[in-house]
Computed example of a mutant assay.
Amino acid sequence: MLSPTRIYVEPAAALLPRGREVLDRFPDAERVEVDSHWRIPELHGDEANARRWVRIKREALVLGVKKSLSARPNGRSAHFIAPSTANGCAMACAYCYVPRRKGYSNPITVFANIDQITGYLARHVGRQGHMTEPGQIDDRAWVYDIGENSDCSADALVSDNVKDLVQLFRGLPTAKASFATKYVNRDLLDWDPRHRTRVRFSLMPERTAKLLDIRTSPVAERLAALDDFRAAGYEVHVNLSPVVVHDGWLDDWRELLESLGDAASPATRDQLAAEVIMLTHNQPLHEVNLRWHPQAEDLLWRPDLQEVKRSEGGGVNVRYRRGLKRELLDSFLALVEAHAPYLRVRYAF
């Protein structure tokens, strides 16, 4: 997954304890000093790097300092989006929205000022007090998504930032951490989260995942991890996402839902919940994907089914046409009800 040969380092990050730990973890990697983790031309913003993405993700690592700390309200996966302790990813899913923010190759950037981040989060949780109105996010706890811009399971290969967050929330009785993942990192099983961290394993049919979920754990491996993570003290949910429409898509999802039921024990199924997210794609990402993985675009780019949607930032996204999307989503939810009736769908869009 990761074999860093070059670490791009902000000087301030190298002076912090976490920064030194990361550098010591990869002593043979070349160190390159940079002014900002946002501006590294050979990594970020060069679409000509498309064919080198996987190599860049495997061999490059960035070490920086998180400059601004805020917990943004969310309302779907979590109540708040926590300040990132990393961004970028070692994986290369063809539909991922994160690369658009920092240039498409976007290897892992680790933030070394973890003590500032955990301190901020502890204070933010304290200001919320006790949650008084249960909702679809959680019945009793404020939920903080700690992995909006990265995959925490992969981040844990690089530093102890994610472990520190799990340990932080273990001691916060009014809050939970939450993150989605496509990578099974069994080191997390030893962290004793005490049900204060929710792991959302992202799932899609294996036939689709082989084409779109590049460098991720096989879906069968993710399914096999559900019971183990629940037994280790995590709250385990699933993300059924993205739902990609193609010939035979409902049959593929039926097989996956049946496999989910076979993989999850009664104890796991009793606490299992799901998020359902239909595919949203992006025109610039589509054009870049054509340079390195055009087969993926046969599924992702469907002008016959999709319409343009402008994002809040002005980007050109595409989604399934409004009326059609409702029909597709209803068909999918009926499939879940028929083949995984134990699975509570927290939200679907």
Rank of each mutant, 00 (worst) to 15 (best):
G135A: 07
A175T: 10
G135L: 10
C152H: 02
N161W: 12
A141M: 13
R170G: 11
L189S: 11
P193L: 12
D164R: 15
D139C: 04
R186V: 09
V184Y: 04
V143M: 09
D164M: 13
D139H: 10
L165H: 09
R170M: 08
W142A: 02
I146K: 06
V158A: 02
D138F: 13
P193Q: 04
R170K: 14
L189R: 15
I146C: 04
L157W: 02
A154I: 02
V158L: 10
L188Y: 10
L168K: 00
D192M: 08
N149G: 08
P173K: 01
L168E: 13
A180P: 08
W191E: 09
K176I: 05
C152D: 03
R170L: 12
V184S: 04
A154Q: 13
T181D: 03
D155P: 02
I137P: 00
Y144L: 06
E148G: 00
P134E: 13
I137Q: 06
V184I: 10
D145I: 13
I146S: 02
P134C: 13
Q136R: 15
G171F: 04
A180Q: 07
V143L: 09
D151M: 01
E133S: 09
W191F: 12
D138G: 11
V184E: 08
A177K: 03
P173C: 15
R140H: 11
D187C: 02
K176D: 09
N185F: 03
K163Y: 08
D187P: 00
D138M: 10
L157F: 10
Q136T: 14
L165E: 08
L165Q: 06
L165R: 03
V184A: 08
R194I: 00
V162G: 01
R140M: 00
L172F: 05
D192H: 14
E148D: 06
F179C: 00
Y183P: 02
V143Q: 13
Y183E: 02
K176R: 15
S150L: 08
Q136K: 15
Y144C: 02
N185R: 07
L172Y: 01
V158H: 06
G135I: 14
C152T: 00
V162D: 01
D187M: 09
Y144Q: 09
S159Y: 07
K176W: 14
V158R: 01
I137N: 04
D155K: 01
V166S: 04
E148C: 03
D192W: 13
S178M: 15
D139Q: 14
P193D: 01
V184H: 03
N161E: 08
P173M: 07
W191V: 04
G171D: 12
T174Y: 11
F179H: 08
W191L: 07
K182Q: 12
Y144N: 07
V143K: 11
L188A: 05
L172A: 00
D160G: 07
K176P: 06
K163Q: 11
P134F: 14
D145V: 14
L165Y: 06
G135W: 13
Q167E: 14
N185K: 03
A175H: 10
P193Y: 08
Y144I: 03
G135E: 14
N161H: 02
I137T: 12
T181L: 06
L188N: 06
S150W: 05
Q167Y: 00
G147S: 11
A156N: 05
R194T: 04
P173A: 14
L172N: 00
L157A: 08
I146P: 04
A177E: 03
P173T: 06
W191K: 03
F169R: 01
C152V: 03
E148W: 04
R170V: 08
I137G: 02
V143G: 11
P193C: 06
L188K: 07
